[in-house]
Design a protein around this nucleic acid. Structure first.
Length: 931
RNA sequence: AGGCGGGUAGCUCAGUGGUUAGAGCACCGGCCUUACAAGCCGGGGGUCCACGGUUCAAAUCCGUGUCCGCCUACCA
């Protein structure tokens, strides 16, 4: 006995209900460590940094969808949550808050207290993530995961560090690195964002030669660095300067001399004056030059980028202030040689946007060449493939040019570097367990490295550190490597590449077979979602909806919690008000998922428009209502084992044939990671074919059947199509499909949940293989109905008014076909009389429609104005004539007829015949109307 | 500087050689027709960035240019 769905679909109610059921039923916790799953992926849960946005919802949706598809397709499939540590962003938020609310820095608090506060902050934020994950269909006890992983994860990090050190791949060196003076830490190359087109000036000034014989003019965009200059370089073959090589110049502000050197590598004689000031301690090129010429390295900066004691009178100045001061001092000495506007790119800290400085300091590095080579090999051999494959090129590009990775950070929150320094002998002890003495000289006077590791170092271990590595755990054996890694392409280098390098290095296998990279979710203007722009959309707001007042309040609170400056908070609120003047309507998790997935086909950006999600919210509603219709008509329905194919109507056969094709398309879409195609195929099948045509066509058979078998067959097909469609839709819209599917009449041995019901496959449709010709028959029926509706619409006949219709079919078969569809024609075109004739003896003027295979007539009497009909028919004739002309043009082209494939030519001929027939009929019709 | 992606309806995007280029939203006209007005029926709207080439046939393939976006990069 079918249970009827209630009127009005409420996603919130449905979604929370089924989430609870799945969790209780243990459907999410299928991890069986004894058996290697056919498909497995791990879900990286977002770090708790507050950067919660639709991108996370996209990742979760895709991941959950893929897993559901696999599982329904009979594969043992699962995905597991795995959290990583929050990195630099977390502590920056805490640090900003400290500064803003208490006016203190982390250094005022001390390491221990600061770390404690970061931890507190993380705990507080945990709840948000949990709810989001749940609604996207995820499964986990997030907090349990987050707070128990710390110890084991740390162990893995330490093991990895020590091994790399022992293998000589982890080393410590004094080098020029990227330094953020605001975060007061080193950064890796990837953490520096180069902003292009920054306006600046190229400033020229002169160094006087020591012997007083003249001067040499150099150019710079960073005047203050001249305080650390230790050479001037010229091209060795440059006639202008060759004679100066070997001479010295005198520093005009600080009292020292340095040489003029010849360096073909550094100097481009065409650029500027052809002479380059060399600041080995503050410029990467100059650093190399300094090493080549054995120059002095003078560090002029303190860690906070104020000038240090090497700068004489400028000591203590802030760097940009010093820039002005240096220029003024040089001008005063009469050495200023003017400047020109200059555009350049300047490196900024990815997190705080401060201009980074090249800075000499001692840091830990990971040697990349061998690790990178292995990862490249994995991709070349196909051990790991990228989807879409275009990313492989990008991946290789980066891997080939990779430089050693600076992994130490002068921060406090993170995995601390396991290295101890001995002051007595200078030896470095790197160990798995905390040592109490120097391993070389035995001195107990050792101190641990203060620094922590780059977040991405531990993240790079994620695919196996979450599984218990370095222990040979069962989980590790079972679940490593994963099937698919699903993430955004923005972290392909940060994360994906590093996971691959680390995984291959430590476990000998790439951590996943497939890397599926999805597009980035951006706002409706295509901007990156960013808290400082106020355009971040919280997926929960899309799911539950949010009022216009609430959203402003929420944004303000969020911004404040993140330590954003008050004036910027104001801007965020303003932007929010403009973007969401009416708040956001509730769409439900199903609609959100469906829209995100349907947009995955887009190249690199998904411009998220709330309007689009609303469209899919309507789709969910459509599913609900269509199901309501079906269930209302399935009372007392007992699923029959078999149905006599003779009992099927044209509509039945047609919809089954269409359904079969949709199943094939969906299957293909899933296999090829074309989720947009799969989802849209089902969408159009459901709405355009099932709802708009089949349901309308089946009504006569249900309400006033001519034969009982027809009704039985119709109900059988109705339930079959709906059941199949729901299973097709389930990976895209898990909640609503479960709710409806549960109420469907099913055999007693049906699975407990749709999520373990089989995913539809073409083999289910062996019985409808020969239904395909019915699609063509259906096309005739549809075009007759459309044509009648078109005439009604264009001639302004009220939809409620029933009209007479005469149809003249092209041949006997079509005629009897249409005769068998009287009920459908009468209902869908709203007729009061229907004549199907071989020859129409008109009693008076009639409106006429011409379709392939039939002519239809609506007697004008009292319905249509002759002038209107004349205009309408003329328009149609024009269209047909235009097409015919193009068609005949092609056919009269010898080259086309001679060279195009025979079937294409034949098609064209057929079309020409059809069109000229139409033209004849329409012209005759016009003549009649006119005459 | 190099690499990559894109330019299709008012907006957001599908469409990798073959009828008349599609969808959603927006728009216009008409309907509360017993699943659904969160809906139904009908309609208007495009020089597929530009130019050139290949081809019987180009939005689609090739070349050049142009605009936009992203990524990578040590030009003072």
């Amino acid at each position: 006995m079918a249970e009827i769905l209630e009127k009005g679909y409420d996603p919130t109610k449905v979604e929370s209900k089924w989430y609870a059921f799945w969790e209780k039923g243990g459907f999410f916790h299928a991890e069986d460590e004894s058996e290697k799953p056919a498909f497995c992926m791990m879900l990286p849960l977002p770090n708790v940094t507050g950067t919660l946005h639709v991108g996370h919802a996209l990742t979760t949706s895709i991941q959950d969808m893929i897993t559901r598809w696999h599982r329904m397709s009979g594969r043992n499939a699962l995905w597991m949550p795995g959290t990583d540590h929050a990195g630099i962003a977390t502590q920056m938020v805490v640090e900003r808050n400290l500064k803003l609310q208490q006016g203190i820095s982390r250094h005022d608090l001390g390491r221990e207290e600061f770390v404690r506060r970061v931890w507190e902050w993380k705990k507080e934020k945990g709840g948000i993530i949990t709810e989001q994950e749940r609604l996207m269909g995820a499964s986990l006890d997030w907090e349990r995961e987050c707070f128990t992983l710390d110890e084991s994860r740390s162990r893995a990090v330490r093991e990895a560090f020590v091994r790399l050190y022992e293998e000589g791949l982890m080393y410590r060196d004094n080098r020029l690195i990227n330094w953020c003076p605001s975060c007061i830490t080193a950064l890796s190359d990837l953490e520096v964002e180069h902003k292009e087109g920054v306006k600046g000036e190229l400033w020229h000034f002169a160094y006087p030669l020591s012997d007083g014989s003249g001067e040499i003019v150099v150019a710079t965009t960073r005047p203050e660095t001249m305080l650390g200059d230790t050479a001037v370089a010229v091209h060795p073959e440059d006639e202008r300067y060759r004679h100066l090589i070997g001479k010295t110049v005198r520093h005009p502000l600080l009292d020292y001399e340095f040489p003029i050197v010849g360096d073909a590598e550094l100097v481009d004689p065409e650029f500027g004056t052809g002479a380059v000031k060399v600041t080995p301690a503050h410029d990467p090129n100059d650093f190399e030059t300094g090493k080549r010429h054995d120059l002095e390295f003078i560090n002029i900066l303190n860690p906070d980028a104020t000038l240090n004691e090497h700068c004489g009178p400028f000591a203590g100045m802030e760097r940009f202030e010093a820039r002005r001061a240096v220029k003024a001092a040089i001008a005063e000495k009469g050495l200023d040689r003017g400047s020109q506007d200059y555009e350049m790119s300047i490196g900024h800290c990815q997190r705080c946007e401060t201009v980074v400085e090249p800075y000499i300091s001692k840091q830990w590095f990971v040697k990349m060449d061998s690790l990178a080579a292995e990862a490249v090999k994995a991709v070349e051999t196909g051990e790991t493939v990228f989807v879409p494959s275009t990313w492989e090129k990008t991946f290789h590009e980066w891997m080939r040019n990779i430089r050693d990775w600076c992994v130490s950070r002068q921060l406090w929150w993170g995995h601390r570097i396991p290295a101890w320094y001995c002051d007595a002998c200078g030896h470095i002890t790197v160990a798995r367990e905390d040592p109490d003495r120097c391993e070389k000289c035995g001195s107990t006077d050792i101190r641990r490295d203060e620094d922590v590791l780059d977040t991405w170092f531990s993240s790079g271990l994620w695919p196996f550190s979450t599984l218990g590595w370095p222990e040979e755990t069962k989980a590790l054996k079972t679940f490593y490597p994963n099937s698919v890694m699903e993430t955004g392409f923005d972290i392909i280098f940060f994360w994906v590449a590093r996971m691959m390098m680390m995984g291959i290095h430590f476990l000998g296998k790439s951590p996943f077979h497939t890397v599926y990279l999805h597009a980035m979710v951006r706002d409706h203007e295509g901007r990156k979602m960013s808290k400082s722009l106020g355009n971040v959309i919280d997926p929960l707001d899309l799911i539950h909806g949010i009022g216009k007042e609430e959203i402003l309040e929420k944004r303000q609170k969020d911004a404040e919690a993140l330590g954003i400056l008050p004036k910027n908070v104001k801007g965020i609120v303003k932007a929010t008000k403009k973007l969401f003047p009416d708040g956001i309507p509730a769409a439900g998790a199903d609609a959100l998922r469906f829209s995100l997935i349907s947009m995955t086909g887009q190249g690199r950006d998904i411009k998220l428009d709330v309007k689009r999600i609303e469209g899919f919210r309507f789709f969910a509603n459509k599913i609900w209502n269509a199901s309501r219709f079906a269930l209302m008509n399935l009372e007392d329905f007992v699923p029959a084992e078999t149905i006599d194919p003779e009992a099927y109507s044209l509509a039945d056969r047609w919809i089954l044939s269409r359904l079969k094709k949709t199943v094939e398309t969906a299957d293909e879409g899933f296999r090829n990671y074309h989720f947009d195609q799969a989802s849209m195929a089902v969408y159009h099948f459901f709405w355009d074919e099932f709802c708009d045509w089949y349901i309308e066509l089946v009504k006569p058979a249900l309400y006033r059947p001519e034969r009982p078998e027809a009704k039985a067959a119709a109900r059988h097909v109705l339930v079959r199509v709906l059941d199949t469609a729901l299973r097709l839709l389930h990976p895209f819209m898990p909640f609503i499909t479960e709710e409806i599917w549960q109420k469907l009449p099913k055999p007693a041995d049906a699975p407990e949940s749709i999520m373990i019901a089989p995913y539809p496959k073409a083999a289910e449709f062996a019985d409808v293989l020969d239904f395909e010709p019915d699609e063509k028959k259906m096309t005739l029926l549809q075009s007759v109905i459309r044509s009648a509706r078109n005439i009604r619409g264009e001639c302004g006949i009220e939809p409620g008014r029933r009209i007479p219709l005469v149809v003249r079919a092209a041949d006997e078969d079509d005629s009897s076909l249409l005769d068998g569809q009287r009920a459908a024609l009468t209902d869908l075109a709203r007729l009061d009389s229907l004549q199907i004739v071989a020859n129409y003896e008109k009693a008076g003027p009639a409106a006429k429609g011409v379709v392939t295979g039939a002519e239809i007539f609506i007697p004008l009497e009292g319905l249509i104005d002759i002038a209107e009909e004349l205009a309408r028919a003329k328009g149609q004739l024009e269209k047909v004539e235009k097409e015919l002309a193009a068609c005949e043009g092609r056919l009269s082209n010898e080259n086309f007829v001679g060279r195009a494939p025979a079937d294409v030519v034949e098609k064209e001929r057929e079309r020409a015949r059809d069109l000229s027939e139409k033209r004849e009929k329409l012209s005759a019709h016009l003549r009649e109307l006119e005459g």
